[in-house]
Design a protein around this nucleic acid. Structure first.
Lengths: 180, 180
DNA sequence: ACCACCATGTAAGTTGTTACATGATTTG
DNA sequence: CAAATCATGTAACAACTTACATGGTGGT
């Protein structure tokens, strides 16, 4: 699942402009790309060149014109293929763990400060995720199954963060109490 | 925590050749880079140019010579700074969730196949992680704290995978039973 | 004979990031 | 009057990947 498929997926939900996509991608936890202009506009041009999407220019009074991109049948077919790829487990960068791995360079207090800070970050991240999950404005609900899966996706982030939080607080307690 | 810091960290454990580092990095879950030659040898040259590491050539009979890299005090100082960076929560890419997000393009059976496959992948990944955690050869244990933290790091991967597995099997059950 | 391992490195390409450029409009 | 928002795009750079090049050794 790369940015091409991500954008095709979003367009399979509804038509968007490049600017819309940029906002959605950079705001969401799920679509993790930075949402920088360069890539999104480039990918849209490529998708159009490959005949998977098309756009209509929508003029606006007192605002710049938009290019509203829509997916076509060929785009939907390509998307379908990428959705059917064998899913693989992705163990990805947990840079905090690398920090802890070389903690022999740090004092006990410095390690505890790191753990405390990370714990606080997780707590505020968690409440952010929970807030988003309750609001739930920007998710598609074309079928009951889709609505259910989008709830489950939000839950996945929350569960992962809760697990990480519990791990962190246990680790912090063990370090601070010297129970190694 | 980028590749530079990762390599400095490994060298702060013990001296390694580029080839050693390549093996360690590509084998480990923690150091997630692909461990391709190009980057590792390039980073080693940069670290040496910046005066953070040095190397000795070690001749071997019937095998090519090695460059054994060692970290110096300046390197340790730079590493320390990067270890003291404020840790940030990384919501890393879960491409499987993006696949599920656009499942409206797929049939119920196709979604179930994906969930089943992913579940099996997680199960085998989990037993791999657990096996590694039991063997535990390649971890430093200069202090009790370091040994403890390396155990906890391994636990972190296991816990995260268990959480993901439970989430997946619950989701699969709900979809297969139609409890949306 | 062929493949994998050891060991270093380079070339060519893709992908991703930050920052810039333009220019009207709205908000503080 | 500075700033953020809307909207498109480009330039320059950094990071990462795959594949190639060399060449001896050891296993099947």
């Amino acid at each position: 699942m790369d940015l091409h498929s991500t954008i095709l997926g979003l367009l399979s939900w509804k038509p968007f402009s490049g600017y819309d996509l940029k906002g959605i991608i950079s705001d969401s936890n799920l679509f993790y790309w930075s949402g920088n202009n360069n890539q999104i506009y480039k990918v849209l041009l490529e998708l159009q060149r490959d005949g998977l999407v098309s756009f209509e220019v929508q003029q606006q009074q007192s605002l710049p014109a938009k290019k509203i991109y829509s997916i076509n049948d060929q785009g939907r077919a390509v998307l379908r293929q990428s959705l059917l790829q064998k899913p693989q487990v992705s163990d990805w960068p947990k840079s905090f763990l690398i920090q802890l791995a070389w903690s022999d360079c740090l004092t006990d207090d410095e390690v505890l400060d790191l753990l405390n800070f990370y714990e606080q970050e997780l707590i505020s991240h968690l409440s952010l995720l929970q807030g988003e999950a309750e609001r739930r404005e920007n998710s598609p609900h074309r079928t009951a199954r889709e609505a259910y899966l989008w709830r489950r996706i939000a839950d996945n982030f929350i569960l992962a963060t809760q697990t990480e939080l519990q791990w962190t607080s246990e680790t912090r307690k063990a370090i601070s109490e010297g129970n190694l």
